[in-house]
Amino acid sequence: MSRIVQWGVDLPEVCAPTDFRRGSWRPLSNDYRAVETYRCAPGAKVGCPITVLVVDAEPKVTLDEAEAWREHTEAVADVRVFSGGHFFMTERQDEVLAVLTGGSLR
Rank of each mutant, 00 (worst) to 15 (best):
P59G: 07
F82H: 04
G43A: 12
A66N: 02
P59E: 10
L100G: 05
Y38N: 01
V52F: 05
R3C: 05
P27S: 08
G85W: 02
L11K: 13
T51N: 01
R70E: 12
D64A: 13
G85R: 13
V52Q: 01
R22T: 09
D10H: 13
T101K: 12
V46P: 06
T101L: 04
E95D: 14
V52T: 12
F88M: 13
V54L: 03
H72S: 09
T73R: 02
H72Q: 13
V96Q: 10
T37N: 15
T37L: 15
F20Y: 11
V14A: 14
E65I: 06
P59Y: 05
P17H: 13
G102N: 07
H72A: 05
L105Y: 08
I4E: 02
V54Y: 05
S24E: 11
T101P: 10
F20L: 08
Y32I: 11
V96A: 07
M1K: 03
G47L: 02
E91K: 10
R33G: 05
T51S: 05
V5M: 05
D78M: 00
L53K: 00
V96K: 11
P12E: 02
P59W: 07
D10N: 15
T37M: 04
V99Y: 00
V9G: 08
E71G: 11
D64F: 08
V54E: 07
A68L: 04
V81D: 06
R33W: 13
S29T: 06
R39H: 10
C40K: 11
F20I: 06
C48M: 15
V54K: 11
R92W: 03
S2D: 01
V81R: 04
I4H: 09
D78Y: 00
S2W: 09
D64C: 12
A16D: 07
W69A: 07
A16S: 01
V55P: 09
R22A: 03
R22Q: 03
S2A: 12
K60A: 06
S29Q: 09
M1A: 15
Q93N: 14
V5Q: 12
T62S: 14
V99H: 08
G103K: 11
L28I: 01
S83Q: 03
F88S: 00
V35F: 13
T18Q: 01
V99S: 03
H86D: 00
G102V: 08
S29L: 15
L11E: 12
W25L: 15
P17G: 03
V76L: 07
R70I: 02
C48G: 14
V81M: 05
Q93V: 01
G84S: 04
C15N: 06
T90H: 06
V52E: 00
W69D: 03
D78K: 11
P59H: 06
V55L: 06
R106M: 03
E95P: 01
D64Y: 08
D19G: 05
S2F: 09
K45F: 07
G102W: 03
L11S: 10
A41W: 08
S83Y: 02
D94W: 09
H72P: 00
E71V: 11
L97W: 15
F20K: 03
G103I: 15
V9C: 06
E58D: 15
S24P: 06
A75C: 01
C48I: 13
